[in-house]
Structure formats: structure tokens, C-alpha cells
Design a protein around this nucleic acid. Structure first.
Ligand SMILES: [Mn+2]
Ligand SMILES: [Mn+2]
Ligand SMILES: [Zn+2]
Ligand SMILES: [Zn+2]
Lengths: 142, 142
DNA sequence: CAAATGTATTAGAATGATTCTAAAGTGAAT
DNA sequence: ATTCACTTTAGAATCATTCTAATACATTTG
């Protein structure tokens, strides 16, 4: 069993476990998304990666798949930029730096941030998630 | 001097202080934006408010004005929803609850949240702003 | 105050990300 | 192999936002 096949098996498993049918498009995109370390991708960036890898996948499928993976809990959606959505392969609780100039997200492990006090939620609402976003500027030249 | 005129004078002052020319459209929108307490508005919501108030203001002007006010530091832009931008009339440091189901932002005063530890910024970058967003769900029925 | 000048405003077109449609393809079950 | 539900797709549609280039307005100048 080649390495590639091994990864495919892992991905197939991941999809099944998430209640998603194992299809070629999903396998291929899962491979791109989850085969490397944690990543933050836009739909378009993933599309280009897929094309560069010689995959024949439509834009609609990229969007469908990202949305399905998100709905299935395999991806988290991060909203920091007015223009695009980012999909985050790291679904554990964590936070982000966002470099506006470069439209780039950087993970911050949960234990790197201490939020030691939060207000009570309004009556009738529960906390779904606490996000800390640290927006970064380039340092001025010395 | 009527109350309306008094507010207008204040708004004119605010615009001038921000280096913006005092024009009818800007005065009218500033009046809607800053005449009441702190608010979070979308471009479209402001447009509708303007129309309901009998103002004759184009969509382009609403967008132009919001962007100019933002650039001038009179508004803060809040990015919590994939679909739309929110403009926040509260430019002091503060945080937000976001009720996804209702697409509604609620202010959290800075002193209601304690962020007691943050990671160092990557080399070459400085912190522009730390945002805490608490996403809320409706509580399940008892 | 009237003309001149630089901004502002506007209708409508353009853009770009995302979603939708409805037709053809594929996976799983029989 | 046949069926049936689900998936993929090209292209159209949608929607927020931006752009264009023409007209209106605010401010300065004479
Ligand atoms: Mn939830
Ligand atoms: Mn800055
Ligand atoms: Zn992340
Ligand atoms: Zn606010």
C-alpha cells in the first residue's frame, strides 16, 4: 500500500465518520485540505490548488464540498475579511492573528491566550464560541 | 435654534474635525448614524433608514459615506458575518456578542472582558487591535 | 455676487464571491 | 446489470460592494 493510498484510506474514513459519502471529489479535496498540517484556505485558493494538482473539479464542487465539510464539523469557517471566507482545518478551540496586508491567518493555540473574564450572555442565549482575533500591522521601518 | 439644528451643528463640527467637507448627504447620514446612541448598521439598513426618513440618497453615496467615515475614524467596521459588513458608531475599544440567528451585534464594554495574556506578535508585525467576539446561540427550550 | 475649481453625488454598469438550477454522472444497494 | 439517491457540473443568477463618467454642489477667487 503506497503512502498515497494510505492517506486516501484515512480520508475515506474521515468522510465516512462524518456521515459523508466517499466520492472522488471529496477524497481529493480532503487530501489537499487534511493531508498537510493545519491550514486556512479560501475557496478560490483551494480551487487553484486542485487544478494545479491536475484534478478536474468545478468551482461549484469546491464550494459545495467546503460547505459540507463545514456543516459536518470537519472545517471551521473564519470570518476576518470583508471579501472572502476562510476555511480552517484546525477545528480545535484556538485563536488567530490576522495580517490584513497579506490576507493571512496565523493560528494561536488556545493556551496562548487567557480570557479570564467574560460578561454574562443575554437572557435566552448561550455562548457558542469565543473568538479572539488579533489584527496585525507591519511594523514601521526603523 | 431648534434641536434639529443643534444636532446638525454638532454633526457639521464632527465632519469638519475629521477633515471631511460638510455636505448635505454627509450631514443627513451623520445625523442618522450618530444622533442616537451607539449602533451597528449595515449599508443596506442605513439606506432604508435614509429612505424612510424621506432623504434622497443613492446607494453609492451610502457606501461612499460609510467608507469615508470609516477611513476618517468616525466608524469602525466589524466583520462577523460572511454576507455583510457592519459599521459600528462606537469607536472606543470594546467587544461584541454576535447573535448569528438574528444577525445582530451587541456591544460589550472593554472592562467587561479580561484578556490577561496574549502571545507575542510575529517578528515584524505589531498589534493593531484585539477583537473578542462571543458568538451566541438561542438557548434550547426548557 | 458670479465665475471657476475641485469635490461629492448619482444612476447604472461592473465586479467578485457565493449560491442556484437542472441536467448528466457516480456510488451503493438490490 | 438496474435502480435510486446522491453528487458533480456548467453556466446562470444573486447579492454586496465598487466603479464609471456625467451632473450637482461647496468653496474659493476675482
Ligand atoms: Mn452552535
Ligand atoms: Mn492600523
Ligand atoms: Zn486557525
Ligand atoms: Zn460595537
Amino acid at each position: 500500500m503506497r503512502l498515497n493510498e494510505k492517506t486516501k484510506a484515512l480520508m475515506a474514513n474521515k468522510l465516512s465518520a462524518a456521515g459523508l459519502r466517499v466520492t472522488q471529489a471529496r477524497l481529493a479535496l480532503a487530501h489537499l485540505l487534511f493531508g498537510q498540517g493545519d491550514r486556512h484556505v479560501t475557496a478560490d485558493a483551494l480551487r487553484e490548488e486542485a487544478l494545479a494538482a491536475g484534478l478536474k473539479i468545478s468551482q461549484a464542487t469546491v464550494y459545495n464540498t467546503l460547505n459540507q465539510f463545514h456543516a459536518a464539523g470537519l472545517l471551521r469557517q473564519v470570518q476576518v475579511d470583508q471579501a472572502r471566507s476562510y476555511f480552517d482545518t484546525n477545528i480545535d478551540t484556538h485563536h488567530h492573528f490576522y495580517v490584513e496586508d497579506e490576507a493571512r491567518l496565523i493560528d494561536i493555540a488556545a493556551q496562548e491566550v487567557d480570557v479570564t473574564r467574560l460578561p454574562d450572555s443575554p437572557k435566552g442565549y448561550d455562548v457558542d464560541r469565543v473568538e479572539v482575533i488579533i489584527r496585525l500591522d507591519k511594523s514601521p521601518k526603523a
